[in-house]
Every structure is written in C-alpha cells, then in structure tokens.
Design a protein around this nucleic acid. Structure first.
Lengths: 226, 226
DNA sequence: CGAATAAATGAATGCTGTTCATTTATTAGA
DNA sequence: TCTAATAAATGAACAGCATTCATTTATTCG
C-alpha cells in the first residue's frame, strides 16, 4: 500500500516537487480551515494547488489517502511535552486534553484514524512512542500500557465528538413527560456547569480513567482530581 | 424540523401507508445488513421499496433524516434490562457492553448520534430514561448523572470504532526502530490477550470509569472488576 | 539530438443526493 | 355522481463528486 516515491530515478523530474505530500497536506488543511471538511474536495484541492484535478492522481492514490496524510499531520500537533517535565499522571492528562482539543476540530478524521495502520503514519507512531516511554519510565508494567492507551484514546475520540455537539442535545422538548428522571437530571446539571457540560463530563471521565487504569497497573495517580 | 405527518386530513390517502418511517427504516436496515453502509443509497432504498428514488422525498427530507431514523431504531436494541434486576453497577456495565456491541456494527451512525437532538429520537430518549432511573434509584446525586452518562457514552463510541478496527493496527513494521518502547509494549500485550486486545482495553476502561465515576458521586461500585 | 519518463491536461464515466413539472390515484364535499 | 382537492409516484434533469484515460507537455539522462 505504500506509494512508490515519485520519479525515483526517472528523467523529466522537475527540480522541486510541485505536488509533494507536504504541499498537498498543507493545501488540504487550508481548505478545511477556510470552509470545513465539506469544502475539501479533490477539485478544490487541485484548484488551490493550481492544477487540474486529474493531476492529483499522479501523487495520491485516492481521497482516502489524502485523509490519511491529513490525519498524521494533525496528530503531530498533539502535545506530549508533559512527559518530559511533569509527573506521569499529569502528563497523561495534559496529553489527553490536547489530543481531544485537536480532534474536536477534525472529527471527520476520527473514522480514518480508527482504521489506520501506524506503520503508515510516522508522526502518529511518534506520539505513541512518547506516551509509552513516559509510562515505562513511570514504572508501568509493559503489558498494561497498550490497553491503557487504547482505552484513553477511545474516550478521547468520543469526547471529541461531544465537544462539538450542540449544547441543547439533551433538551427533551415535547417528550419531557415520557422521561421524567432524565429531564430532571438534565435540568439539574444545566444549573451547575454553565454551558460547559461536555467539558465537565470529559474531566470527570478523564480523572476516573487515569486513576482507575493506574490502580489496575498497580500504581497510584499522584495528583488529586481537579 | 419535525416533519408534518403525511396527509393528515388530505384526500387521496391510500388505506395503508406504503412508505412509512417504519418501512423505510426496515428497508434501510436490510440493505445495510446485506451490503454494509456503502450500499445504503437513496436509489438502493427506493428500489428495495419498489419505488422511484424521487418518491422517497415525499416522505423523507434527506438521507440524513433516514440516518437519524436508523439511529433511533438501532438504539432501541441496546439492552437496559439489567437495571430492573441487577445491582446498579452491574446494570451499568451490562448496558455499556450492549451499547458498544450494537454500535460496533453501526459505526457510521456514531457521527449522527453525536449531533442528534433527543427530542427527535424517542427510543434514544427512552434508553437515557432507563439508565437515569436506574442511577437515581441507586442513590446517585442527580447533578452527576448526566456527566457520568456522557463520559461513558464517549468511551463507548470510541470503543465501538476500536472493536471493528483491524487487529494489526499497531504493527510498527519498518518503523519499529524509531519506536522501541511502543513496539515492545505492543509485543508484550499481544502475547497476553490473544487477539482480544480491543476487548480487554474496553473492559479495563469500563471498570475504571464505573468505579471512578461512582467514587466521584460519593458511591461505591459493589462488584469487583472481572 | 533522441530516448525515456514523470507529470499535467481535458474530456469522459458512473455514481451520488436532490429537485421539479407532470401525471396518477384516491377521497371529501357539493 | 360529478368535481375539486390533495397526496404520492414518476421520469427526466441537475450539479456535484471521485476517479480514469488517452494524449500532450516538459524535463533530464545517455
């Protein structure tokens, strides 16, 4: 599945690649920032690169591949710097918050990630490596690290969707009579956390996961929950 | 946004509705089961209902609406019966397992749910009501229930993606040298949980979430973790 | 110069969801 | 029973999509 490098030895090679992976990814990102994922079409991408749509296919297998490149690029902006400076549990929380924040603005990439082989996504792999190394250094048993990352990641993806959902999703409206307990519960927490319902749910879940997974690993999260 | 009932008072009404929401939803489900979500097109849907594609639009606003109907229908097969018989934490785990199992076969609906107003999804609302009632009866403080459900749901959605991902996602391949810790960690857990990596990560995360969220709510999960 | 080759092109393909003017069928009321 | 009203089905059409292909253009190596 890995693409051949374009014109490895060939003649006719221009001095600078006009349509490199980097240029295509950058253009795609610009389109998304300007008009959202709905605006990301192969035509739009070609136009922004000053080229015919068909020319794109000399450098990309499919739109799916563009999305894969995009995914790996976006992933590189997830912050793992905490593992260099902070206690492991604070670093883990910081990583999770950054991860969620980044993908809340790129939810259409989530189905792509979920199926993506890391072997084709070097920066994604680098992120996993940073997290793993941090946990290893903190004394986590090796066998528990991948399950913990997977569990956290699952929670992060779901929370990213949640972060961009309309705030009034849970308004029961005309059906309130059929759901008295739930309607009351929604009212209850609307008062508490003003508008930031998704935020507080994320923090609650994150704390539970970090604490619980650490306990399963025979460790103890050092900092209390916020 | 709520559709008018077709032919409320009108003349020309056939005795039985040929294209009701139920019939459309059933047909869509059959198409999906036969050929996956890629096969679910408005043309295919029309053909299965023995009708021209354009006729569909007398009963449905858009394909998105079909997906919303589908979502609510699928949601009704999530099992909440545990809340009637089991201790609350076991019921919660059972619900989460069922929820994940159902949507693992309907991952394309996840982005739909995340944006869907419950006011238009009665069976989804019924599910929330069942869970909420169960937690209220168990003594959960009302203000903590919605955040807990949201956190669990986020985890469930992410885990549903995970459940259908290829097993070799984490094979680092040629890049193993650049990620020694992670590669080792992957090897480590491959040996432990044979093929069921997603499963064990889900159970670990579920246990952490249920335990941790309960502790935040001032309760204690009764049953130990599996 | 000539051969080789990558890359760009424009036209075309088949699919998608969706719209629209028109026709068909059914029923309510006079 | 005739007529008016109205919902629903139709087929043609549309714009947009990702993608393919034969052809042309440009570049560089021998």
């Amino acid at each position: 599945m890995t693409r051949d490098e374009p014109h490895r030895r060939g003649a006719g090679r221009p001095v600078k690649e006009v349509l490199s992976q980097a240029r295509i990814t950058t253009a795609a990102l610009a389109i998304i920032q300007a008009g959202g994922y709905g605006a990301l079409t192969m035509s739009a991408l070609a136009k922004r690169l000053g080229v015919a749509p068909s020319a794109l296919y000399n450098h990309v297998d499919s739109k799916q591949e563009v999305l894969r490149w995009l995914q790996d690029h976006v992933m590189s902006s997830v912050d793992t710097s905490g593992f260099a400076e902070l206690p492991w549990d604070q670093a883990l929380r910081g990583w999770a918050r950054s991860y969620r924040k980044v993908f809340a603005r790129h939810t259409p990439l989530i189905p792509v990630i979920a199926v993506l082989q890391v072997s084709g996504a070097p920066r994604t792999l680098a992120m996993y490596e940073a997290v793993t190394e941090g946990l290893v250094r903190a004394g986590w048993p090796p066998a528990q690290i991948v399950p913990a990352i997977v569990a956290l990641e699952s929670f992060i993806y779901g929370s990213a969707y949640d972060a961009v959902a309309p705030q009034d999703i849970f308004e029961t409206g005309a059906l309130a009579g059929q759901s008295p307990h739930f309607t009351a519960a929604v009212r209850e927490q609307c008062g508490r956390s003003e508008g930031r319902a998704a935020e507080s749910a994320f923090e609650a879940g994150l704390d539970a996961l970090v604490t619980g997974l650490a306990r399963q690993a025979g460790l103890r999260a050092e900092s209390g929950h916020a």
